[in-house]
Simulated scan of single mutants.
Amino acid sequence: MEVTLLGTGDTTGTPTPRCDCETCERAREEDVERTRFSVHVRNEQTDQSLLIDASPDFRRQFRREDVPLPDAAVITHVHFDHLDGLGNAYRLLDHLPVHAADEHDPNLGESVAEHVDSRYHYLDQVTVNPETPFERFEAAGFEVTLVPGVHPPLSTYGLRIDEPETGASLAISGDTSYAFPQESRDVLRGADLGIVEGIVHADLCEGHPAGGDHYDADGVPRTFGTKHMTLTGARALAEDLDVDNYRIVHTAHFVPASQAFADDVALDGERFEL
């Protein structure tokens, strides 16, 4: 299993356009990026590729990393920075099975799968496959399991990817607060690599209208507002999941430069052989 982090940033990415903060300036100086979130997973046994979330930066990411175009995709939730790149299937792909959760979301009025299907109904290349959380399904030769996260007001999902022949495994939290359910944690636990979401440093909770939540023993918030983890929360979740290695993703440029480039905070283009 070869894992490539195509996009490791939040909604605006780093460097953010027209931003002269220290973090964005340092990213420009070092020629590094955090584009909108996406992960490419290549099955070396079947020579197929699975795309986790379709970033609006799809074209740039695939050209830059020179990885194969996907044979299948999983969409974790319907926010634009995880979904809007799906339109790139037009003219690039002959067929793309897209897997998404089948649970009805009362705030959305439909499931993630139904939303993707209705939004991209005009793309003959896209076939949506509704999947039930906690039930394994096959995609690109992998065994995949969706698990619920906590990202109000919308439903969102993490996932585990297993390569049956080699036993390699990847866990992705998806966008979530630290209230990530215990049943979901149990599915992700013990993977070779964990990709966990951490949007900002904990001090920034003081300026959020909802503050922070899920404080650790030292009083540091592990949730920023209500729907994202802090860096502290991401590290705590990675520890609880007992993964062999982890990277923090979906990180915003609001993190000070002194923390934004820590070894465990991912940058685009990182690649792992599992």
Results as ranks from 00 to 15, higher is better:
164 P>A: 09
5 L>P: 03
50 L>N: 03
140 A>K: 08
128 V>R: 05
171 A>V: 03
175 D>M: 14
68 P>F: 05
189 R>K: 15
59 R>D: 15
235 R>L: 06
33 E>H: 14
226 T>M: 14
81 D>Q: 10
185 R>C: 12
33 E>T: 15
239 E>Y: 11
128 V>Q: 08
241 L>S: 10
263 D>A: 14
184 S>M: 12
177 S>K: 10
47 D>V: 03
206 E>G: 02
15 P>E: 05
89 A>E: 01
33 E>M: 13
166 T>D: 02
24 C>I: 07
252 A>K: 09
16 T>H: 13
60 R>T: 14
174 G>Q: 00
186 D>L: 07
131 E>H: 04
45 Q>A: 15
20 D>Y: 07
86 L>F: 01
96 L>I: 07
180 F>R: 10
188 L>H: 11
232 T>R: 09
69 L>M: 11
235 R>T: 05
239 E>M: 01
23 T>S: 14
119 R>H: 08
51 L>K: 03
197 E>C: 12
225 G>P: 08
152 P>M: 11
106 P>M: 10
137 F>Y: 14
132 T>Y: 03
132 T>A: 13
31 D>M: 11
27 A>C: 10
49 S>M: 07
194 G>Y: 11
191 A>K: 11
164 P>G: 07
114 E>R: 13
136 R>V: 10
227 K>N: 15
255 V>F: 07
253 H>Y: 14
134 F>K: 02
75 I>S: 02
257 A>K: 14
166 T>M: 06
233 G>H: 05
7 G>K: 06
10 D>E: 12
100 A>V: 03
178 Y>K: 06
47 D>M: 04
9 G>W: 06
220 V>D: 06
137 F>S: 11
179 A>K: 12
98 V>N: 01
35 T>W: 09
249 V>Q: 04
153 P>V: 11
96 L>S: 04
65 E>M: 13
230 T>H: 03
74 V>E: 00
174 G>W: 09
234 A>R: 08
162 D>V: 14
99 H>T: 04
272 F>K: 04
96 L>P: 04
170 L>S: 01
11 T>G: 08
141 G>H: 08
43 N>V: 06
29 E>S: 15
235 R>H: 02
91 R>Y: 13
67 V>G: 01
229 M>P: 00
16 T>C: 11
174 G>E: 04
187 V>Q: 03
67 V>K: 04
14 T>G: 09
192 D>T: 05
250 H>P: 01
147 V>A: 10
229 M>V: 09
165 E>F: 12
39 V>C: 02
110 E>Q: 15
92 L>I: 05
212 G>A: 09
